[in-house]
Design a protein around this nucleic acid. Sequence first.
RNA 1: GGAGAGGUGGCAGAGUGGUCGAAUGUACCUGACUCGAAAUCAGGCGUAGGUGUGAGCCUACCGAGGGUUCGAAUCCCUCCCUCUCCGCCA
Length: 431
Amino acid sequence: MLDIQTLRNDLAGVAARLATRGYQLDTVKFEQLEAERKTIQTRTQELQAKRNAASKQIGQAKAKGEDVSAIMAEVGALGDELKQLEQNVGRAIGELQNFLEVIPNVPHADVPVGKSEADNVEVRKVGTPPKFDFEVQDHVSIGEGLGGLDFETAAKITGSRFSLLKGPLARLHRALAQFMLDTHTEKHGYTEAYVPYIVNGTSMYGTGQLPKFEVDLFRVPRPVGEGIEEDFYLIPTAEVPVTNMVRDEIVPLEKLPMKFVAHTPCFRSEAGSYGRDTRGMIRQHQFDKVELVQIVHPEKSYEMLEELLGHAETILKQLGLPYRVVKLCTGDMGFSAATTYDIEVWLPAQNTYREISSCSNFEAFQARRMQARFRNAQGKPELVHTLNGSGLAVGRTLVAVLENYQQADGSVLVPEVLRPYMGGLTSINAI
RNA sequence: GGAGAGGUGGCAGAGUGGUCGAAUGUACCUGACUCGAAAUCAGGCGUAGGUGUGAGCCUACCGAGGGUUCGAAUCCCUCCCUCUCCGCCA
């Protein structure tokens, strides 16, 4: 959520910056909601003050044993109007809140302006795509050929967009996650976290998935009381539970930065993407991801973003997978982000780079929604900045390994760094 | 699933329906004493919104939401959470 003060002070400026990401801020509506809120609130507070003063008088008069019927009658007459006004204030503030919480974050000044993916800016390319002297197969053919990747059985068990791994491929999947976790905890200073995979609506709101993107989530209905429902949701990323660790907290200055890494499954309904990436395990309803989350001092957040990006890149370097880093343009960034780098890995069968990690600085956007604060040098609570990035998406990394390390005979070489996690196995052959 | 206890300021912990936004302790900040520190003493010390050039003033907030009342931290209802015991369970 944006700071309402900024909107009050520089509405046109905010609107202009939001326009670069294709969001038309309804400034007229904002001003109207603000004016309405102000009028009603001021009037209400005047009446409340009157009532409080009179009530206080009643108390004092009663203590002295004086007659209070006159004042009681007077203040009693205030009741109906006040009740009405209080409801109106609540409604006005609610409307303003609803308006604010669907406004996306303002892009950082350095973010390239653009409309779509096509306008993203390549930052660097690392590694060279491998040359093959045979016909390249995609990960589906490779995996099925090895007998370890089975979409049909997954579809029988659940439905489309789920996958089933067996044997060495299942182990490779586990090895990748372990390798990533070990690297980030041992070399990059992250604290490993094991977190709930099901969260409440407040947590989803805190990181920005709700209220705007409910269709992307899997909802778990949960009646809590008489006619009350407080649904749970399957996490679409570990960002949600991990970042919400600091919701409603005021952390001491010296605890910053906080760095967490978590390996979790992620669940996405992928509504509205039915025609895309239907083959293979690129776009699934369930996939594993190792997620990096940082809670940092506002002055350090951009520095830390570069660092976090580097941590994710390390994994690809270690695995020997060619990739490129792209800085997303204003039009392609997610709702909550102020700056985002995507890391795209080379997929030989698609002859292109595909997203495997997304690293973002949310500045205070999530922190404001979550009321995640730290006590600054002056002793005052101040909003933290939050960052996160995939380090990496495990399923897509598996795809990349299969495709980049495929051999003419259909087998797949195991990248060196994964061998200790594979019981020394150097090559995966058909079962 | 059953029974009980409890949720109040950074923390601990009081609070007969009426000068309670909240005692007290502790932590923290400032000052005094001291060569300095500790101890002691004095003062300050929540969040958010409104209003004013400003000192300030006003409003809301005692787990959440409703209700009763001129007035609610305090009474009533619903819910959430925490803890203890029993049962069940990986």
